[in-house]
């Protein structure tokens, strides 16, 4: 029983990261029906942005101070991810706005390779794993025999807070309503006076900011990053988004946590489970899509007329 709860905790932490990344996939898909395969790399460059500020910019006297170092790392990570995403939208996707859907999809894969290679070639030491600072004490505490790291608490609390904030933003603010309107009928949104190019940029910005936070979290948890981390995390987060119903924000969060927990439990309970740890996400995806092709909270399968 204790093992089970321990894995639930681990899975929740894992799922929080997946969920944060999945939101970027699902929001962009909801607005422009693009599977942005470069989103995993937005997550990766965020982690590298955070690393850079810690390694090169923070004076040593401040690097140990969590109240300075952590916000600095997060802010720069977000700035790097958001900047990259805005450029990507402007230079790579916007010119293809009215092209057949395959063109932006292939472009996204190209952007993804471009960003990986750029970090590999031009980041100092980018070809190898880079140690990532812990920032928060590496300490743990026990609750009823279950061990929880402080980093895990931080990850889950921040992730949930951001998810709630995003929901409120989309439901309550004027820009959020414009986002929902654009996703439901972009042409009609224009007739309301909505500048849908602006809405699309805002969508990329939000997704990138969440991915940057996830990137820093991932770095803190595994204590290292490299130029490839966006691939697998991106793929799993994409799976989470599809699992929850692509285009659906609540679905992405749900899919993220579900995948994280399944992965943690399967690693524990399936014989040889850990060597298959990257497979469970996709098994769950296939199982769910057989029963519900639109995903758990997906509204319909048919594409918009």
């Amino acid at each position: 029983m204790r093992q089970f709860v321990q894995q639930l905790v681990n899975g929740t932490v894992l799922g929080a990261t997946y969920g944060l990344i999945a939101l970027g996939y699902t929001m962009v898909y909801g607005i422009i029906q693009l599977i942005n395969f470069a989103h995993g790399e937005i997550f990766m460059v965020g982690a590298f942005g955070g690393l850079t500020v810690y390694r090169y910019w923070l004076p040593e006297s401040l690097a140990g101070n969590v109240w300075v170092a952590l916000p600095a790392v997060l802010i720069v990570a977000i700035a790097v991810s958001v900047g990259t995403a805005v450029l990507m939208e402007r230079l790579a996707y916007r010119p293809l706005r009215n092209a057949p859907r395959l063109a932006p999809l292939i472009t996204a894969i190209g952007v993804s390779i471009f960003l990986q290679e750029a970090v590999r070639l031009f980041y100092p030491g980018g070809k190898r794993q880079q140690p990532f600072p812990q920032l928060i004490s590496s300490g743990t505490f026990d609750v009823a025999g279950v061990t929880v790291a402080w980093v895990s608490v931080f990850v889950v609390v921040v992730a949930v807070a951001l998810m709630v904030a995003l929901q409120v933003f989309v439901k309550k603010t004027k820009t959020g309503k414009a986002m929902r309107a654009t996703s439901q009928d972009p042409e009609s949104a224009k007739l309301m006076g909505i500048d849908i190019n602006r809405v699309i940029v805002v969508t990329f910005v939000l997704g990138a900011a969440l991915a940057a936070v996830a990137g820093v979290m991932q770095g803190m948890r595994f204590a290292q990053i490299d130029f490839r981390i966006g691939f697998l995390s991106g793929l799993k987060a994409f799976t989470a988004a599809v699992l929850g119903g692509i285009g659906n924000i609540t679905g992405a969060v749900l899919g993220g946590f579900l995948l994280g927990i399944v992965e943690a439990l399967a690693t524990q309970y399936v014989p040889q489970g850990s060597s298959w740890k990257d497979v469970w996400a996709f098994i769950v995806l296939i199982a769910v899509l057989v029963v519900r092709p639109g995903g758990l909270l997906g509204e319909r399968v048919a594409t918009r007329a």
Binding site: L191, M192, G193, I194
Partner: peptide, 19 residues
Amino acid sequence: RRLFPRMTIRENLDLGAYR
């Protein structure tokens, strides 16, 4: 008509006043 089908009547009206 091209309404926003998954938004409420009130939300549709508010979007009409977007500018």
